[in-house]
Write a protein that binds this DNA or RNA. Structure first.
Length: 816
RNA sequence: GCCUGCGUGGUGAAAUGGUAGACACGCCGGAUUCAAAAUCCGCUAGCGCGAGCUGUGGCGGUUCGAGUCCGCCCGCAGGUACCA
C-alpha cells in the first residue's frame, strides 16, 4: 500500500463523522472516562500549543475507548473576551461575527487533525443559551451572599475615558493613545472567594497524586495563609496634633512577632487612608505628594523591584518599649494585603533592610543565629535566639512567638490573626464582549436582581466599538429597562463578567446531553455519572487563576445543591509551551509554524506523532522541521512494512520456546512496548518513551522474517499507536485485522522469561566491565565472577566492600 | 521583586540513587542508481594511536555509588489577580 495521508485521513475523518464514532453513550451502567482539554479562545487559527493540547487529550480518549470505557471528550470555545473587541477596534469587525467565523474555521482545523471530540456537545460560551444559565448562577450566588459590590482601583485612561486591562497598559501608558494611565476608584462586583480560602487550601490535599506537585504548591502560595500578630501602632503626641486627632493609630500585621523589638520604622501603602488624609488636608509638601502619586500609578510588580519611599514626619510609639518610630510611605507596601501597613524590622527582613539602607534608617538586630555570627551587611531572616528583647531574651524564635502574642493579647495590645494573600475575585468588566451582569439599578429599590424568567439578558448587536468608553454604557437604549421589583424606570448594569466565570463551569455543561440543553444547565444524574474529570489537560500558565476559580465554583455549586463533590479535576496534566528557536511562538517574533501548512504537507498523523515524540508533555517543546520529516518517514515505513503481515481476525498464536534469538528478541520488544504504553496512561504520560518503545519494537521485528511474529507485532503495535496516529492505524487495522485489534491487549509474561542476566561491574563506583550471570546465581558466585573479570584493576589492591545490586551491577570498593 | 519550574552530545531527548546519552533528527560512510531523489545498511559525547582519561549550567556537600538528594551561585521560562 502506498502511503497517501491526504486521502487516507479524509477517508477516516468522514468515516468517524458518519458513524458518530466518538459520541458518548447515555448508558450510565458502563464505566466512564471524562477526558478534557482546556478549551481554546477562538483567536482565529489554531496554533501549535492547541495542537499539542488536543493531541494529548485525544490520545487519552482513544486509549480509553480501546479499553472499553464510555468516553466523554468534548470541545467548546471560551468565546467572550477582549481580543474580539481589539479586532473590532483595529478592523471594524463585529465581535460576534469575528468570534463565530473564527470558531467555524478552528472547528475545521480540529477535525482535520483527527481529534475524536463529541461533535454533538460543541458549545461556545458566548451563546445566549450559555449566558442564560450563567446569569442564573450569578443570581444564586448573589442570594447566597457570595457576590457583592465595593470600590476597587482600576487602570483608567483619561483620554479614551475607558478602563484598561493590565495588558493594555504599556509602560504606564494607554496602549492606544499613549496617555499616562491613572488609578481610578470605581464600584466593582466581587465574588467572595476568600470565604472558601481555607477549604481551597485544605482540599489541595485531596488532589495530591493527581495534580502536579508544582501546581499544588503554586496554589498554596497564592492562597498564602499565614498566622501572625495584628496590633495597633499609636501616634505620639506631636503627630496626633499634626493629624488633628483624626487618626490615633493604624493597624499592622506581622508573621514575625519574635522580631518585635527590632522594629525601627513603620511603612504605609501609598493608598493608605492616613496618606490620603494628609494629601487632602495639605499636610504634605508638593514633592512628597508627587512621589506618592507616582508610586500609586506604578504596577504592583514594578513597585516590588526598586524600593522607594518618602517620610511622613510622623512618629508612632513602639507598643512594648514606647520608643518613637518614624512612619514612612513605601512603594512595596501593598494596600490589598493585610492592613496596608507594616512594622519594619530591617535586621530580619530583606525588603525592610534594603529600604533602611537606602534611606539610612536605623537597624536593630534582635535575633541571633543558633550557630555563628550575625552578618551586619545582610538581613538575617531565619529563626534564631532572641536578644535585646527584654523578658524574651534567650528564647528561640518559635516559642517566643507564642509568648509575645500571648503578651499582646493579655494586655489588649493586639491579637493573633490569620491572613491570606488571596483576595476576593473582581468579576466586573467595563466592556462589551462578555456576559452582562444580570442586575438593575433602581432609584427606589437600589440594586435589584433580574428575574430568572427574563434571562438571558443578551447583548445588543447594534453597537459601536471604538476603544473609548464602555460600549454598553454608550448604547442609546439598551440600558433602559423596568425595575424587576417595582416596575419603575430603571437602569441596567452595563458591566459584563470576567471571562474566567465562563471557564469556571463549562466542564459541568459538557456533562449535559444536547436534548436537555434548552431546559437546564445540566442534570444532577449526568453530573454524578461524568464528573470528576478523569484527565484534565492544559497549559501550565493556568496553574493558578483558572484552576482556582474552577475549584471555587465547584464548591459553590455544591453548596447551592447542584452537585455533591468537592473537586472537579481528579488528574491534571499541565503541558509545556511550544517553542521555536528557543522562544515562545508568536506572530511578533515571526517564528510561528502554521498547523494547516503542516497538515497539508505531511498529514495530521505526522503532526501528532512529532508533537508527542519530541518531548514529554510537561516539558517545553522545541520545534524542529527535520524531526517532523523524521516522524513522517516513520509513519511511511510503518505503513509500507505491512507487506510483511497477513490478514487475520485473531492474534496469531506462537510457540515462544521454539524461536530463534532474533525472533524472541522481537517479541520481547513488542510486549515491552505494550507494557510501557499501559504505564504511560496510568501515571507518567511520557508518550515520547512509549513511541520510542514502539520504534525499538519495529527495529527488532526488522531483524527477523517470521510472518507470524510480524503479524502479531502489527496487531499490538497498531493498537498502541492508534491514539497517536489514528488515521494510519485504523487503515492498517481495517485492511488486515477487520478493526478487531483496536482493543485492550494482553501482556504475555512468558515472553519476558530469561535464563541469564548481564551485570555491570564497577570499581569504586566507576564502571569497568560486564559479566553474564545465570538467573538465581548466589551473590558469592556473582562477586567471584566480577572479581575475575575485573582482575586487572584489582591487582595489588585491597577490597574493602562488595555491593551487589540485584539484576543490575556489582560494585567493588578498593584501596591500595 | 515575589511564587513555581527548568538547565544532559551538533539538535530533540532517555535514565525506581546503580553500566549517562535509549529512541530519533542531523552529519559522515556504504549499498542501490547513468545520476539524483526515495529507500536500505553502518558510524557518531569530547580528548587520546592506545591502555585510558574527562564529561549531565557553576562551586561545594551527603553516599560504596549522584544527571537524580542537600546548600549556595549563574542563566532561561511560566505566573503575578482586567490576556486567556
Amino acid at each position: 500500500m502506498e502511503y497517501n495521508p491526504k486521502d487516507l485521513e479524509k477517508k477516516w475523518q468522514n468515516f468517524w463523522k458518519e458513524n458518530r464514532s466518538f459520541e458518548p453513550s447515555e448508558d450510565f451502567s458502563k464505566e466512564k472516562k471524562y477526558i478534557l482539554s482546556m478549551f481554546p479562545f477562538p483567536s482565529g487559527r489554531l496554533h501549535m500549543g492547541h495542537v499539542r493540547n488536543y493531541t494529548l487529550s485525544d490520545a487519552f480518549a482513544r486509549y480509553y475507548r480501546q479499553q472499553n470505557f464510555n468516553v466523554l471528550h468534548p470541545i467548546g470555545f471560551d468565546s467572550f473576551g477582549m481580543p474580539a473587541e481589539n479586532a473590532a477596534i483595529k478592523n471594524g469587525s463585529h465581535p460576534k461575527s469575528w468570534t463565530y467565523e473564527n470558531i467555524e474555521y478552528m472547528k475545521n482545523e480540529f477535525y482535520s487533525l483527527g481529534f475524536s471530540f463529541s461533535r454533538e456537545r460543541e458549545l461556545a460560551t458566548s451563546d445566549e443559551l450559555y449566558t442564560k444559565f450563567e446569569q442564573a448562577f450569578i443570581i444564586d450566588m448573589y442570594e447566597k451572599g457570595l457576590l457583592y459590590r465595593k470600590k476597587g482601583l482600576l487602570n483608567w485612561c483619561p483620554h479614551d475615558l475607558t478602563v484598561l486591562a493590565n495588558e493594555q497598559v504599556v509602560e504606564g501608558c494607554c496602549w492606544r493613545c499613549d496617555t499616562p494611565i491613572v488609578k481610578k476608584d470605581m464600584n466593582q462586583y466581587y465574588f467572595k472567594i476568600t470565604q472558601y480560602g481555607d477549604e481551597l487550601l485544605d482540599d489541595l490535599k485531596k488532589l495530591e497524586g493527581g495534580w502536579p506537585k508544582q501546581v499544588l504548591t503554586m496554589q498554596e502560595n497564592w492562597i498564602g495563609k499565614s498566622n501572625g500578630l495584628e496590633f495597633n501602632l499609636f501616634f505620639e503626641q506631636d503627630s496626633l496634633s499634626k493629624l488633628k486627632n483624626s487618626f490615633e493609630s493604624f493597624d499592622v500585621f506581622t508573621t514575625r512577632p519574635d522580631t518585635i523589638y527590632g522594629v525601627s520604622y513603620a511603612a504605609l501603602a501609598p493608598e493608605h487612608e492616613i496618606v490620603k488624609y494628609m494629601i487632602e488636608n495639605a499636610l504634605l509638601d508638593s514633592q512628597t505628594i508627587a512621589a506618592i502619586n507616582s508610586m500609586k500609578n506604578t504596577s504592583s510588580i514594578e513597585r516590588q523591584k526598586e524600593k522607594s519611599g518618602v517620610p511622613l514626619y510622623l512618629d508612632v510609639l513602639h507598643p512594648l518599649t514606647g520608643k518613637k518610630i518614624p512612619v514612612w510611605v513605601a512603594n512595596f507596601v501593598l494596600m490589598d494585603y493585610g492592613s496596608g501597613a507594616v512594622m519594619a524590622v530591617p535586621a530580619h527582613d530583606e525588603r525592610d533592610f534594603d529600604f533602611a539602607k537606602k534611606y539610612d534608617l536605623p537597624i536593630y538586630a534582635v535575633i541571633a543565629p543558633y550557630e555563628g555570627q550575625l552578618n551586619p551587611d545582610a538581613a538575617f531572616t531565619e529563626a534564631g535566639k532572641l536578644f535585646n528583647s527584654e523578658n524574651f531574651d534567650g528564647m528561640n524564635s518559635k516559642e517566643s512567638q507564642v509568648h509575645i502574642i500571648e503578651y499582646f493579647e493579655t494586655r489588649n495590645l493586639g491579637k493573633k490573626t490569620t491572613n491570606y494573600k488571596l483576595k476576593d475575585w473582581g468579576v466586573s468588566r467595563q466592556r462589551y464582549w462578555g456576559a452582562p451582569i444580570p442586575f438593575v439599578h433602581c432609584d427606589e429599590c437600589g440594586l435589584v436582581m433580574e428575574k430568572k424568567e427574563n434571562l438571558p439578558i443578551a447583548l445588543p448587536e447594534d453597537i459601536e466599538i471604538t476603544g473609548e468608553g464602555n460600549p454598553l454604557e454608550k448604547h442609546p437604549t439598551w440600558k433602559y429597562c423596568k425595575c424587576p421589583a417595582c416596575a419603575n424606570e430603571a437602569i441596567r448594569e452595563t458591566d459584563t463578567m470576567d471571562t474566567f466565570v465562563e471557564s469556571s463551569w463549562y466542564f459541568l455543561r459538557f456533562c449535559a446531553s444536547k436534548e436537555n440543553w434548552e431546559k437546564e444547565a445540566f442534570s444532577s444524574q449526568q453530573i454524578r455519572y461524568w464528573m470528576g474529570v478523569d484527565h484534565y489537560i492544559g497549559g501550565i500558565e493556568h496553574a493558578i487563576l483558572h484552576l482556582l476559580y474552577a475549584r471555587f465554583f465547584t464548591k459553590v455549586f455544591r453548596d447551592l445543591g447542584y452537585l455533591n463533590f468537592d473537586e472537579p479535576f481528579d488528574k491534571l496534566l499541565t503541558q509545556g509551551m511550544v517553542l521555536k528557536d528557543g522562544a515562545k511562538m508568536s506572530k511578533s517574533k515571526g517564528n510561528t509554524v502554521d498547523p494547516d501548512a503542516l497538515i497539508e504537507k505531511y498529514g495530521a498523523d505526522t503532526a501528532r506523532l512529532f508533537i508527542l515524540f519530541a518531548a514529554p508533555p510537561t516539558q517545553e517543546l522545541e520545534w524542529n522541521d527535520s524531526a517532523v520529516e523524521g516522524a513522517y518517514k516513520f509513519i511511511k515505513r510503518f505503513y509500507d512494512r505491512t507487506s510483511r503481515i497477513y490478514k487475520t481476525d485473531t492474534l496469531p498464536v506462537i510457540e515462544h520456546a521454539l524461536l530463534s534469538k532474533e525472533e524472541k528478541f522481537a517479541r520481547v520488544k513488542v510486549y515491552e512496548a505494550l507494557v510501557r504504553a499501559n504505564d504511560v496512561y496510568k501515571e507518567k504520560y511520557t508518550f515520547n518513551t512509549m513511541i520510542a518503545g514502539v520504534m525499538e519494537a519495529m527495529n527488532a521485528l526488522n531483524l527477523q522474517t517470521d510472518a507470524d511474529i510480524w503479524t502479531e507485532g502489527y496487531w499490538i503495535l497498531s493498537a498502541i499507536m492508534e491514539p497517536v496516529i489514528p488515521h494510519v492505524c485504523w487503515d492498517v487495522s481495517k485492511e488486515y485485522f477487520s478493526l478487531k485489534n483496536l482493543s485492550a491487549q494482553k501482556v504475555l509474561e512468558e515472553v519476558f522469561v530469561v535464563e541469564s542476566l548481564k551485570f555491570g561491574v564497577s570499581i569504586n563506583g566507576k564502571s569497568r566491565t560486564e559479566i553474564e550471570v545465570a538467573v538465581g546465581e548466589s551473590n558469592e558466585n556473582i562477586i567471584a565472577l566480577a572479581k575475575e573479570s575485573a582482575a586487572k584493576w584489582l591487582e595489588g589492591m585491597t577490597i574493602v566492600k562488595e555491593i551487589v545490586v540485584p539484576g543490575k551491577l556489582v560494585n567493588l570498593v578498593i584501596k591500595a
